[in-house]
Design a protein around this nucleic acid. Structure first.
Length: 460
RNA sequence: UCCCCGGUAGCUCAGCUGGUAGAGCAGGCGGCUGUUAACCGCCUUGUCGUAGGUUCAAGUCCUACCCGGGGAGCCA
């Protein structure tokens, strides 16, 4: 049995083929029926043409409608009609699974909001089908890029003891019965009686574990689900999302920025090459900037400025911003978008942020006021990558922990890494769904992951 | 969490200054054509988000809540 993708890619027509899939439309005329079958292997469907000589004409073909699962055998021929190169003259059509007449997917366009309520069926639509293929290709491209660059993949734990960077609410993991859990003498929950003997949470980042592996295997990455219990209701946030986190030993900030740029160019190039049809669809139906934006990322060098330069550009821009800009405050969405969309018009790497607005583990620069942090900003999405050179000097790291009132005992093993063969190292995090959003032009992040988890909704 | 906008048929929406609900699509039946989100005719479908309130009368006005969308914050 061939996939429709393979059949449509054939050099020439001819021969008997078997097709299995789901009907997008069934157009019935008096003497013949046209059945458009899709099997998810590509955006295009395959047109089956059946007439009264077809086995199954009465009792099957004439009763088919949108959504039916079928299997058909016939001859692959050049299509005389417009809109497709080949079609199949069906000799036999079997109904594998019929549909009740309340099948919710129509031939007409649905809103993405409605499709989210039928997440079990929406992957059969053009747009979500294309998203799943692009997402798959991007994931493979990421693994292949790191493989070729000599990285090994680290499987970071999903259940962790403590917060990676003191940022973000975490989901608690517990096997205790909330209605009847053991209490301490003070009356609070006795977590020492819980499954792990301590409070545990779903991970918010694999970074700290990746640092461990980088300090033995030099170039490593993680690619897995991460979790944030933030009450974020936006088109760019999920409670469960997939994050890519490379970590490189013997590497400083410049090397990391170069890696980030090379990484994005490679992954985007691969998806452009292999998802041509899907990307053309997104460009036509979702956002007509998709293809030109991809080319920008692949072909043009990224802009590179320091935070201080960014502040100066913003202050001298003459733009009215809702939030004023001055050295020491974090850049707002509107600032990031102005820089990458209007001022540079291409992806942009901003480095060396004030120490006060960044995490404790970031490398303290010689000026004493900035850290070796790096954000990659892209048009329409804003920050897509955040990373930094890590603080590898034990004494400085201890000062930074104390500065942010973080208890050393929670980070005992993280500090150990600085005591035993510490080396300069750096890494970044990439939100995988935001990458897919950027590549497809989809405006809502809930539509680039098959089963989105957001506040108040974990259905399907 | 905050600010705006919205919730009317299975879907997408219309419904003016309050007067008792409608179009396209989907679905059913019939017709027709190498058709392309096919087309033509007929038919079916509603606690007008929920709960209160104002009024002779509420889809329409008021209040609260729920849900959805856009933006912001947090961030990836």
């Amino acid at each position: 049995m061939d996939s429709i993708r393979e059949l449509l890619a054939r050099e020439q027509a001819g021969g008997e083929v078997t097709v299995r899939g789901w009907l997008r439309t069934a157009r019935h005329a008096k003497k013949m029926s046209f059945l458009e079958v899709n099997d998810g292997s590509c955006l295009s469907g395959l047109q089956l043409v059946a007439d009264s000589t077809c086995d199954g004409w009465e009792g099957v073909v004439r009763d088919l409608s949108t959504g039916c699962a079928i299997e058909a055998v016939g001859q692959l021929v050049d299509s005389p009609g417009q809109g497709q190169r080949y079609e199949v003259h069906a000799q036999r059509v079997e109904l594998v699974g019929g549909v009740d007449d309340d099948y919710p997917l129509q031939k007409k366009r649905h809103s993405f909001e409605f499709l989210r309520t039928i997440a079990h069926l929406r992957s059969r639509t053009n747009t979500l089908g294309a998203v799943l293929r692009v997402r798959d290709e991007a994931a493979r491209a990421i693994h292949d890029f790191f493989y070729q660059e000599g990285f090994i993949q680290l499987h970071a734990p999903v259940i962790t003891l403590s917060d990676a960077e003191g940022a973000g609410e975490m989901f608690r993991v517990s096997s205790l019965d909330p209605a009847d859990c053991p209490r301490t003498e003070a009356g609070t929950t006795d977590w020492s009686a819980d499954f792990f003997g301590a409070p545990t949470y779903l991970t918010v980042s694999g970074q700290l574990e990746a640092e461990i592996a980088a300090l033995s295997h030099r170039r490593v990455y993680t690619f897995g689900p991460t979790f944030r219990a933030e009450n974020s209701n936006t088109s760019r946030h999920l409670a469960e999302f997939w994050m890519v986190e490379p970590e490189v030993a013997f590497c400083e900030l410049n090397g990391l920025a170069a890696l980030a740029e090379e990484f994005l160019k490679s992954v985007f190039g691969r998806v452009r090459d292999r998802c041509e049809e899907d990307l053309a669809f997104f460009n036509q139906r979702i956002d007509d900037q998709v293809l030109s934006t991809l080319s920008h990322v692949i072909e043009e060098p990224f802009g590179r400025i320091t935070y201080a330069e960014a502040v100066q550009i913003l202050q001298e821009s003459g733009q009215e911003f809702d939030f004023p800009v001055e050295w020491g405050v974090d850049l707002q969405s509107e600032h990031e978008r102005f820089l990458t969309e209007e001022y540079f018009g291409r992806p942009l790497i901003v480095t060396d942020y004030p120490r006060g607005i960044k995490a404790f583990y970031m490398y303290l620069n010689d000026d004493g006021r900035t850290v070796g942090a790096m954000d990659v900003l892209v048009p329409r999405i804003g920050e897509i990558i955040g990373g930094s050179q890590r603080e590898h000097r034990l004494d400085v790291l201890r000062d930074r922990l104390a500065e942010q009132s973080l208890p050393e005992e929670h980070y005992w093993w993280y500090l150990d890494l600085r005591r035993y063969g510490s080396v300069p190292h750096a890494g970044f995090g990439l939100g995988f769904e935001r990458l897919v959003q950027f590549m497809t032009g989809m405006t809502n992040i809930r539509d680039v992951i098959p089963f989105p988890r957001v506040p108040g909704n974990a259905g399907f």
